[in-house]
Simulated assay, not measured.
Amino acid sequence: MTAPLPFFDGHNDFLLRLMNAPGPREDVWLGTGGAGHLDLPRMKAAGFAGGLFAIFVPPRASGSLSDLRAMMANPPFEVPLPPQMDHATAQPDAMTMAGLLHWMQRAAPEDFRVCRSVREIRDAMGTGAIAGVMHMEGAEAIGPDLDALYLFHEMGLRSLGPVWSRPTVFGHGVPMAFPGTPDTGPGLTEKGKDLVRLCDSLGILIDLSHLNEAGFDDVAAHSSAPLVATHSNAHALCPSPRNLTDRQLHMMRERGGMVGLNFATFFLNADGSTAADGGWEAMLRHLDHLIDQLGEDHVGLGSDFDGCVVPDVIGDVTGVPALFEAMAAHGYDDALLRKLARENWLACLDRVWG
Rank of each mutant, 00 (worst) to 15 (best):
L205C: 11
S62Q: 15
E154A: 12
N262R: 11
E26T: 13
E325Q: 12
I121C: 15
R285C: 07
P4N: 12
D39C: 10
A54D: 08
G161Y: 02
L349I: 11
D86R: 13
A21Q: 15
G192E: 05
E137P: 00
H289V: 03
N212D: 07
S223T: 03
W345Q: 13
F267C: 07
G126F: 08
L18M: 14
F56S: 07
G180D: 02
F7I: 12
T181Y: 05
L101Q: 00
I55W: 07
R119D: 15
V28T: 15
T181P: 10
L227M: 03
G173I: 04
P182L: 00
W164F: 09
A270W: 09
L284Y: 04
S165A: 12
S223N: 04
L244S: 07
S223P: 06
A236T: 09
V196R: 10
G23S: 12
G260I: 08
H222I: 10
A139V: 03
L208K: 01
M72K: 10
P144G: 09
L160Y: 06
G307H: 14
E190F: 13
A129N: 09
I55Y: 02
C199E: 06
L157R: 02
V163Q: 00
L340Y: 05
E110M: 11
Q105M: 13
I130M: 09
R69V: 08
G192R: 01
S232N: 09
A108L: 04
F7T: 10
W280V: 00
L195Y: 08
T32R: 14
H153P: 08
M1I: 10
F8S: 08
H153F: 13
V169D: 11
P311V: 07
V174T: 12
V219Q: 02
P22S: 11
P241S: 00
P167G: 08
V309W: 02
F48A: 03
A347H: 06
A335N: 05
F263C: 13
N269Q: 05
N344Y: 11
E137A: 02
V174M: 02
T184S: 13
I55H: 05
R106P: 02
E140D: 15
L18H: 05
F8A: 08
L149T: 00
L160D: 02
P182S: 04
A90C: 00
A49K: 06
L290D: 06
G132R: 10
D306W: 14
L38Q: 10
M72D: 05
T2G: 12
L149A: 03
F48L: 14
V313P: 03
N12M: 01
V310M: 08
V163M: 00
L160S: 03
S209E: 00
T230W: 12
R60E: 14
G257P: 00
I121R: 13
R166Y: 05
M252I: 06
G47M: 04
S223D: 06
G256M: 08
F267R: 08
I291K: 00
H231E: 10
D271K: 11
V57I: 10
L38R: 09
A131V: 12
M136R: 02
